[in-house]
């Protein structure tokens, strides 16, 4: 018996929002262990979201509809990407909706609206956050594209499912190009998801915050949605990295047992990825904002080197 592709699609759509808080919880646990603190436990993010959902909403006087639509849009868009990125199967009917470039642009929509929402209230914080977010994204996007392009060179496709199947079925090769672009991708992912060393998600210190500054005025279920979307975004970026660079074990048939195994394998990869991220975050300090061009420049450099290495060496 095999599961219908639409079923897997639905499975992924459900899996992502459900797993995302747990993933964030896992990262927090590892981080606390690393820094010698006691951890709040795997389920703490779930409890946070639930608490926020229950709370009432307080809106600023001049908040417009943009401010109110943004959380839904952010949540919805990121949920959609869960249907596009192959997490446990390449046989997704909706995967053709967007290739990897379109996927990046979908994230850009979220960013666009979040930035607008930051400016909607009319506080200095919101504007500052939006301004910095847009600067970071404008520098990160070229690097992201170069990293993606190197991967798509290897499989001569920008379609994610195609990339996964080519990479997972090809024979083993040492590819410096992919190594370079993987490092570049990690650097960019840290920037895009607002982690150390670009942004510190755990602080509300006015001079360092970027993402938090934009969503400072949110409360209640809006904040819950935004937070949840943020968690999902982190996980989606990890899944994207896994699909693009370490796709082994994603492709396969649709029978439930194998699906379950692949799901577990995926979770294991995620867990390892979380540890890697914690290692990076613990090892580095938050950067000054105007050091970021250098940081993202390095990411661009690595991605370009990856592409050059592909042409020169492979």
């Amino acid at each position: 018996m095999t599961l219908h592709p639409m079923g897997i699609e639905l499975l992924q759509l459900i899996l992502l929002p459900l797993l995302a808080p747990a993933f964030v919880g896992w990262v927090k646990i590892v981080k606390c262990r690393m820094q010698g603190r006691t951890s709040p436990g795997l389920l703490q993010p779930y409890r946070d979201i639930r608490r926020l959902f229950i709370k009432d909403v307080v809106l600023a006087d001049n908040a417009s509809w943009i401010f109110r639509v943004t959380p839904y849009l952010a949540f919805g868009v990121i949920l959609m990407t869960a249907g596009i990125i192959p997490l446990i199967s390449v046989d997704l009917p909706l995967a053709a909706t967007a290739d990897i470039i379109a996927l990046v642009m979908l994230f850009a929509i979220v960013r666009f609206f979040t930035a607008l929402a930051g400016m909607d209230i009319g506080t200095a914080f919101g504007g500052m956050g939006s301004s910095r977010e847009m600067m970071i994204s404008s520098l990160a996007e070229p690097a992201m594209l170069m990293a993606i392009f190197t991967v798509s060179l290897a499989s001569s496709s920008t379609s994610l499912t195609q990339m996964v199947s080519v990479m997972a079925n090809g024979h083993f090769m040492i590819r410096p190009s992919l190594a370079f672009s993987l490092i570049a991708f990690i650097l960019i992912a840290l920037a895009e998801t607002g982690r150390i060393p670009v942004d510190n998600p755990a602080t509300h210190l006015e001079l360092t915050m970027i993402h938090e500054a934009m969503i400072l005025e949110y409360s209640g279920r809006y904040l819950a949605l935004i937070e949840w979307a943020g968690m999902m975004k982190l996980m989606v970026f990890f899944s994207l990295g896994i699909a693009a660079f370490l796709p082994w074990g994603i492709a396969g048939s649709g029978d439930p047992l194998s699906l379950l195994l692949r799901g577990l394998f995926f979770v294991a990869k995620l867990a390892v990825g979380g540890v890697v991220m914690v290692l990076i975050e613990t090892g580095l300090a938050k950067m000054r904002i105007f050091r970021l061009p250098e940081y993202l420049g390095s990411a661009f450099l690595l991605a370009t080197l990856g592409m050059i290495a592909f042409f020169i060496l492979e």
Binding site: M173, I174, P176, S177, A179, F180, E294, S298, L301, L302, L305, A309, L313, E314
Partner: peptide, 20 residues
């Protein structure tokens, strides 16, 4: 060949690292 390629890539990377 692949190993050598990898080492070449590393040499290139270190060159850039020296640069920055």
């Amino acid at each position: 060949i692949q190993l050598n390629t990898l080492l070449a890539a590393m040499i290139l990377l270190t060159s850039f690292a020296l640069l920055v």
